[in-house]
Amino acid sequence: MTPLDDLDRKILGALAADASLSASTLSRRLGLSQPATWRRMRRLQDEGILAGRRLVLDAAKLGFGVTVFLGIKLAAKGRVSLEDFERAVTSIREVQTVEHVLGLYDYRLRVVARDLADFERVLRRRIMTLPGVGNVEANVLLSEERLAGPI
């Protein structure tokens, strides 16, 4: 793969902020021809760098007031298969992300809930009952920023 040049990086940065930008809008912004812009967007997609789109919703306005990050340690390694745990945890609707990690915990979860009482319900009924769950640490999200990263 040929490395990305500055124009590719600008296109990537612009789309990361607003995925609905059209090739014509981007081409005007970058002073590039529309077909050239389109080819570059296409390449970023074909190489899997642009991996899709995410709808950005205001969770609080939709009634989801609490986001909690959980660190989960599996209690009985070897006895419970990771596949079983992963299948069960990904099917919980309130669980937004699941990462298998190396370190103090085995899994990192992002959980959304209406309020703390709702979170407690999800934690007790859905998460603590997952196969193999041992130690669980919860940190309640106060603020979040996403940065452009090393583009």
Binding site: L15, D18, A19, I49, A51, R53, L55, V56, K61
Partner: peptide, 19 residues
């Protein structure tokens, strides 16, 4: 208008970018 839909962002696959 109500700010419930804030927009759309592209998901970047950092692995595909070499990270």
């Amino acid at each position: 208008e109500a700010g419930i839909i804030k927009g759309q962002e592209a998901v970047i696959d950092w692995k595909a970018l070499g990270f």
